Amino acid sequence: MKILIIDEMHPSIIEMLAKLGHEVAYFPKITREEILNAVAEFDGLIIRSKTPMDRELLEKAVNLKFIGRAGAGLDQIDLDYMVERGVKLFHAAKGNRDAVAEHALGGLLALFNQVIKADTEVRKGIWDREGNRGHELKGKTVGILGFGNMGRAFSKRLSGFGVKIMAYDKYKMDFGSDLVQEVIWEKLKSESDILSVHVPLTPETRDFLTLEQLSSFAKPIWLINTARGEVISFATLNAALDQGILRGAVLDVLENEKFQKFNPAQKMEFEKLAQRENVIFSPHIAGWTFESYEKINRVLVKKIKKAFND
């Protein structure tokens, strides 16, 4: 097959696909217009998230047999039209689930132990032990929203910390274990000290965490979001932090990740959020490790091989 790669990938993928007999065109800087002009000649596309796989583009891909998504999120892909066309979809959540889990845990520990604030102060010659007193994870109840690859991997990382783990997933059942208690949403809200979000972006999850939802938790919580920023808005985060509904937040994703495209309200709310010492940011890198960069290739190629070469 002829396969077009339109985003930056670990270079190992070219050799891996070539060994299976495929012809690979690697153009990570290709523009959408160039993709539209060239895609008809390709049997496969390997993508990250730069270019939406909408109906306009997919209609041009007349020979398309599969799309390989180097990552987990599928919100920029017209899934219904792919089913209609019979185009296969492979994604690589297993390739970066460990990275996401470790990042979520690392952010939580940094938040609990005032690591960012303390480091900044010490560099300025401020030695404030009491002002940087931390919290212990042991004894807390961690609620996991979404128990797919990422949520499950995160629960495993928590196993040695002496926490109680609860998980809610609307679309999964019978996943409970000795480590994780499967619960309904109301039960999770009644006991959690920490909420870690691991859901995809869908019409159902967009703005799911409203102020009303957060207010219905039985006690103030710490929030971790390594999933999709659109699940909770800047305005909701600020309101919840102002009202003490949230005790702090670890945010690897944002409602809008293009700073230059903030509307005035987003700009104002983000600037307020950025002043908070109990909020830790990172630029959507939870799944972006040196190891996951290569593991994603192995996951995708294995799926392509199983579908077309075995």
Rank of each mutant, 00 (worst) to 15 (best):
D78C: 08
L79W: 04
A110N: 06
L64P: 11
G95N: 04
G106S: 04
Q76I: 12
A70K: 05
G71D: 08
G86V: 00
A99K: 00
I77H: 08
G86Q: 11
D78K: 07
N63H: 12
G106N: 07
F66L: 07
A99F: 02
Y81D: 05
A110W: 00
G73D: 13
H91V: 01
Q114P: 00
F112L: 13
Q76L: 15
N63D: 04
A99P: 09
H103F: 14
F112E: 00
Y81N: 08
N113D: 05
N113K: 15
E84C: 11
K65M: 07
A70H: 12
A110R: 03
Q76H: 14
L89W: 08
F112A: 01
L108M: 13
D78N: 09
A92D: 10
L111C: 03
G107H: 05
L109K: 11
K94M: 10
I77Q: 09
G107R: 02
A92Y: 09
F90A: 11
N113T: 11
F66S: 04
Y81K: 06
H91G: 02
G95P: 07
M82N: 10
K94P: 01
H103R: 05
L111N: 00
N63W: 02
L89H: 04
G86I: 01
A110C: 08
L111P: 03
N63S: 10
L74V: 15
Q76Y: 11
G68Y: 07
L89P: 11
I67H: 06
M82H: 08
F112K: 01
K94H: 12
E102W: 01
L108V: 01
A70Q: 06
L79C: 08
N96K: 04
R85W: 03
M82G: 10
R69G: 07
Q114S: 13
D78V: 07
A70V: 00
G71L: 06
G68L: 02
G86H: 08
I67V: 15
Q76K: 13
R69C: 05
E102I: 01
L111A: 01
G107K: 08
V87F: 09
E84R: 14
Y81V: 00
D78R: 11
L111K: 00
K94C: 02
M82L: 15
G68A: 02
L109C: 06
L108D: 03
F112W: 06
G68S: 03
G68W: 06
L74D: 12
E102Y: 03
G71P: 00
V87T: 15
D98V: 13
F66Q: 05
